[in-house]
Nucleic acid binder design. Structure first.
Lengths: 246, 246
DNA sequence: TCATGTTGTGCGCTATCCGCACATTGTTAT
DNA sequence: ATAACAATGTGCGGATAGCGCACAACATGA
């Protein structure tokens, strides 16, 4: 374990959650590092071209995108999904996304945005807790059951809204239902005013390789409409993708 | 300067250029680090969830995408460009991209792929040398002239193909032409079999904030066709975007 | 079987990073 | 104006962590 490297990555990561421009002291506060250490990390980032300094705040440069590209180039999945995502989003006039599991979170690996529906900025690389996101539940339901339970145990289940399921029992029965019905609808559990529906993306051999969803404002569609109008479109895309994915 | 952090970032970066799965010795060779150092970096990455190890090779995980997201969330530009890019790509049935300058390279900040045209995988985060890419020349032409020359001096101008312009004189006159005509066509200078045309993207105030291009196979369109058929579409998109960008 | 390449591990040395402290600057509030 | 506060830049002593080498073990293939 290289401590300096880990600290530097922590600094890099803390620019994510809503903090785009940060001062040295701000970074120190967010990461818990000593201010001098945070400063050394930021100077290193700037020297290497990953961050810029305007005399007051540090901000990341486009160079960090090359790190993400290193991952995107390593797997063909996002590239395969994107055109289908675009077509689906155009058809239903709502933003669609694909994600995979990474620890207890889901990570967006492809997205086609139609309009801004959530308060936070979602995009490729965004992370959400799996237990309360529609795609997360689809991916958990596809796992081995006790493996999924182990993952839930490691999750910190915060009630993000009054409707959020947090108890393990409730989540387990919900996962069982998702597993049985083949899709998941989450109704204002992640954010008030937001509903979403997700389906698994399977490979030719039937293995679940990702999840596909769309999120709408509650005023736009009821849960019933989600099921009768949007879900069939998602399942159609699911069917189109399956034969193309190894 | 934190040396350990810099070494770790070098390890992270070396997964980019065509090397998706790397062994410890491979990383050591690519980065020039000692094998033990490379090993320490990789173990750190794995411990933090940025890399996975299958007993033989290391590969990056989706977590590195969150680093790229930190940048994407900090600037509205990519999100603004994407729908126009999608529309344009659909209309001309060719892949389109937007990029900005980062040092002597251009970095793709948005892309809409229609088919695979180049041998290497291009996508958000990809880097190309500015001097020989159509978008790069557009961005260089938009700079202060001596600033652009300084940037060219710092570039290592390798003749990637027999057609590549490398001498400073040739590049300067080419930049002057691009500046004058408002677009740039590059004909097999980056890769044999590939032609591309690029235009600058301006903000409302006229400042050049990015470049937009499309690349086609030489069999698909002649230079004249690029100018008469594709260029007008690019300019149309350019005009649509200008009033929307601060 | 030998050669090659890779991994894991241990170890001594030294450079490096840590965390504190002090001086300075800029901003805000009284 | 002045005081209070927050943030920055810098220096320093000391401990620690990383460096690079070397050796042993293992796999692969000629």
């Amino acid at each position: 374990m290289m401590g300096g490297f880990a600290k530097g990555l922590a600094v890099l990561s803390c620019f994510g959650q809503g903090h785009e421009r940060l001062t040295i002291a701000g970074v120190a506060k967010l990461t818990g590092l000593d201010r001098a250490t945070a400063r050394r990390c930021l100077i290193t980032l700037e020297r290497l071209g990953f961050a810029s300094f305007d005399g007051r705040c540090y901000a990341l440069t486009a160079r960090v995108l090359s790190l993400g590209h290193a991952y995107l180039a390593s797997t063909p999945l996002p590239e395969q999904l994107q055109p289908f995502l675009d077509r689906l989003a155009g058809a239903i006039q709502e933003s669609c996304s694909c994600s995979i599991l990474d620890g207890t979170d889901i990570v967006y690996i492809a997205r086609s945005a139609q309009r801004r529906v959530m308060s936070i900025s979602l995009g490729v690389g965004s992370r959400l807790p799996a237990y309360c996101a529609s795609m997360g539940r689809v991916l958990l339901a596809a796992m081995d059951e006790d493996e999924a339970c182990g993952l839930l145990d490691r999750s910190t289940c915060t009630p993000l809204t009054p409707k959020t399921l947090v108890t393990r029992d409730a989540l387990r029965t919900e996962l069982a239902r998702v597993r049985h019905q083949g899709y998941c609808i989450v109704d204002e559990e992640l954010e008030i005013g937001l509903r979403s529906v997700a389906v698994p993306i399977r490979s030719r051999s039937g293995r679940v390789v990702a999840a596909l969803n769309t999120g709408v404002q509650t005023s736009r569609a009821s849960v019933a409409q989600l099921r009768t109008e949007l879900l069939p479109k998602l399942l159609e895309t699911q069917g189109q993708l399956a034969p193309l994915i190894v």
